[in-house]
Write a protein that binds this DNA or RNA. Structure first.
Length: 175
DNA sequence: CTAACTAAACCTA
DNA sequence: TAGGTTTAGTTAG
């Protein structure tokens, strides 16, 4: 697995990917050191820290593009952030949910229940909550655009303040 | 209309 | 089996 860190106006973003696509993408950390720690922790938890050969030509992944879009995103610009993802570390159900979440356009929000209905489980809203909570590819899979059915913000594993901040970047205000 | 509480529903470890 | 980024229904104020 390849690893890298991208600097944006909001901080240092760590990410990891394979030939198949992105494996994880963290939220901005305030220091380069923190970002490195997070990247290593993420890679470790996936048990894929070994064999990070730098020599292998794994540039099917458009690094330049994601770097540009991430910087733009935190500068408040509208970007698609649609990149290939390596779903190998997710469950089938989680993949279904997350791929559906990927379809939510910039600046829009959807409820957990709507996602559940869209994948054929009208009563599985809570399961959807668990699935988006397992999302390792933040921003690329815009799980922050999934909120509760009554317009409330719902939850966010990495900290609710982040969810608010991300939505604010897209012009959405809650609470 | 809001707040509080309950039950139902579904996936993951 | 417990618990999570839920939701719909009921009841009280």
């Amino acid at each position: 697995m390849e690893k890298a860190i991208i600097e944006t106006s909001a901080g240092y973003i760590g990410l990891g990917w394979t030939v198949s696509g992105l494996v994880f993408l963290n939220l901005p950390a305030s220091t380069l050191h923190d970002a490195e720690m997070e990247v290593n922790a993420a890679a470790d938890s996936l048990g894929a820290t070994k064999g990070t050969a730098k020599g292998s030509q794994v540039n099917q992944f458009d690094f330049k593009k994601i770097e540009c879009e991430l910087k733009s995103f935190f500068d408040g610009k509208t970007v698609s952030l649609s990149f290939p993802v390596d779903w190998a570390y997710h469950t089938d159900f989680q993949r279904k949910v997350l791929q559906r979440v990927c379809l939510i356009p910039w600046g829009k929000v959807v409820s957990y229940g709507e996602i559940a209905a869209a994948i054929g489980n009208p009563r599985g809203a809570r399961a959807v909550g668990g699935a988006v909570g397992s999302n390792r590819v933040l921003l690329v899979v815009p799980c922050h655009r999934v909120i509760a059915h009554n317009g409330k913000i719902g939850g966010f594993g990495s900290g609710l303040q982040w969810k608010r901040k991300l939505l604010k970047l897209e012009g959405i205000y809650i609470g």
